[in-house]
Simulated assay, not measured.
Amino acid sequence: MKKFISLLVVVTLFASCQGQNAKAIQTIDSKAYSEKLASSENPQLLDVRTPQEYAVEHLENATNVNWNGSDFTSKVEKLDKSKPVFVYCKVGGRSSQAANKLSELGFKEIYNLDGGIMKWQGKKTSNTAVTPKGLSVSEFEKLINSDKKVIINFSAKWCAPCKKMAPYLTQMQEELKGKISLIRLDADENKTLLETMKLDELPVILIYENGKETWRHLGYLSEEDLRKQL
Results as ranks from 00 to 15, higher is better:
29 D>G: 02
38 A>V: 06
35 E>H: 01
31 K>I: 11
67 W>M: 13
49 R>T: 09
35 E>F: 00
34 S>G: 04
43 P>G: 09
20 Q>H: 13
61 N>D: 13
13 L>Y: 00
56 V>N: 06
59 L>P: 04
32 A>D: 09
27 T>P: 00
68 N>W: 09
16 S>H: 08
20 Q>F: 14
5 I>R: 04
35 E>D: 12
22 A>R: 10
75 K>L: 15
21 N>I: 15
70 S>M: 15
28 I>P: 01
41 E>D: 11
4 F>Q: 06
63 T>P: 07
83 K>Q: 13
9 V>A: 08
58 H>V: 11
25 I>N: 02
68 N>K: 14
7 L>E: 03
34 S>A: 13
27 T>C: 02
76 V>W: 03
50 T>A: 14
8 L>E: 01
12 T>D: 07
72 F>V: 13
50 T>V: 07
69 G>D: 12
54 Y>L: 08
39 S>H: 01
82 S>I: 09
82 S>Y: 04
4 F>H: 00
75 K>R: 15
30 S>Q: 01
52 Q>K: 15
71 D>K: 12
29 D>F: 00
35 E>W: 00
29 D>T: 07
52 Q>P: 09
16 S>N: 11
13 L>M: 08
22 A>T: 09
81 K>A: 04
63 T>M: 14
43 P>Y: 09
52 Q>N: 14
2 K>P: 00
3 K>V: 06
60 E>V: 15
59 L>G: 06
53 E>G: 03
57 E>D: 14
28 I>H: 03
77 E>A: 13
37 L>F: 03
5 I>C: 01
64 N>Q: 15
62 A>Y: 04
56 V>Q: 08
77 E>S: 13
65 V>C: 06
28 I>N: 05
49 R>G: 07
25 I>D: 04
67 W>N: 04
33 Y>P: 00
14 F>Y: 02
51 P>S: 14
53 E>T: 04
47 D>Y: 05
55 A>C: 11
55 A>L: 12
67 W>H: 05
72 F>R: 11
1 M>G: 07
16 S>K: 07
63 T>I: 15
63 T>V: 15
40 S>Y: 03
2 K>Y: 06
33 Y>G: 03
45 L>M: 08
66 N>Y: 14
78 K>G: 08
10 V>R: 00
34 S>L: 11
59 L>S: 04
72 F>Q: 12
78 K>E: 14
21 N>V: 14
23 K>S: 12
53 E>L: 03
72 F>N: 12
77 E>V: 10
67 W>D: 07
75 K>F: 10
40 S>P: 01
3 K>L: 06
46 L>P: 03
45 L>D: 10
67 W>G: 03
56 V>T: 12
29 D>N: 07
56 V>G: 05
18 Q>L: 10
58 H>Q: 07
68 N>E: 14
19 G>N: 08
33 Y>C: 02
61 N>T: 12
61 N>R: 09
53 E>V: 01
72 F>C: 12
7 L>Y: 00
5 I>A: 05
28 I>D: 05
73 T>Y: 07
70 S>Q: 15
35 E>Q: 09
18 Q>V: 07
26 Q>A: 11
45 L>G: 08
10 V>Y: 01
5 I>F: 05
54 Y>F: 15
37 L>Q: 06
